[in-house]
Amino acid sequence: MTRFDAATPEERQRLFAEAITAHRERGSAFATFEADADASALDADAGETGDADADEPADADDPERAPPWVQFGDGTLNLDCTDAELDALKSVLGEFPAFKIDDLVRPEETEGVNVRVSALADPNRVAQCVERIFREVYDQPESFRAWVGAV
Rank of each mutant, 00 (worst) to 15 (best):
V130Y: 00
F96C: 04
T82A: 11
R125N: 10
L93C: 03
E95V: 02
K90G: 15
F96V: 04
P97T: 07
A121Y: 05
E85P: 00
D83C: 07
L104Y: 09
A88V: 05
T82D: 09
R125A: 13
V113F: 02
A84T: 12
N114R: 14
V117C: 02
E131F: 01
R106F: 06
T110E: 14
P97A: 07
N124A: 15
L104T: 10
K90V: 09
L93R: 00
C129I: 04
V113R: 01
L104R: 14
C129L: 07
K90R: 15
T82H: 06
A88K: 09
V115H: 02
E109T: 15
A127G: 07
K90H: 11
A127M: 07
V92C: 03
R116H: 12
V92P: 00
L79F: 07
D102P: 00
L104I: 10
V130K: 00
L120R: 14
V130N: 00
R106L: 06
R125K: 12
R106D: 09
S118Y: 04
N124P: 05
N124Q: 15
D102L: 12
V126T: 09
E85V: 02
P123Q: 05
C129M: 09
N124W: 06
V113P: 00
R106P: 04
A127R: 03
A98M: 09
L120M: 10
A84N: 10
A119H: 01
P123Y: 01
D102F: 05
C81F: 04
N114H: 14
E85M: 07
A88C: 08
D83Y: 09
R125I: 08
R116N: 11
P123S: 08
V113T: 13
G94R: 04
P123I: 01
A98N: 11
K100E: 15
N124S: 15
K100P: 01
G94D: 07
S91N: 12
D87Q: 15
C81S: 08
E108I: 12
V130A: 03
T110V: 14
K90Q: 15
E111T: 11
D80G: 15
V105A: 13
V115C: 05
D103N: 14
Q128V: 04
V117M: 03
D80E: 12
V130T: 06
E109M: 12
V117L: 03
L86Y: 11
E95Y: 07
R106Y: 08
F96S: 02
D83Q: 14
E95H: 12
D103S: 13
E131A: 08
P107I: 11
A88D: 13
R116Q: 13
K100C: 08
F99N: 00
R116P: 02
L120Y: 10
A119L: 01
C129P: 04
E109W: 12
E109C: 05
L120H: 12
E85I: 02
V115P: 03
V117S: 01
L86I: 06
L89M: 05
D103G: 09
L120I: 11
D122M: 03
L86S: 02
A88L: 09
E95S: 13
V92L: 03
A119S: 10
N78S: 15
V117R: 01
V115E: 02
S118I: 08
F99P: 00
S118V: 10
C129Q: 05
V126A: 06
L89W: 01
V115D: 02
S91C: 08
D80M: 11
N124M: 10
S118K: 11
K100Y: 07
P97S: 08
V115T: 10
V105G: 07
L120A: 13
L89Q: 01
F99E: 00
A98R: 14
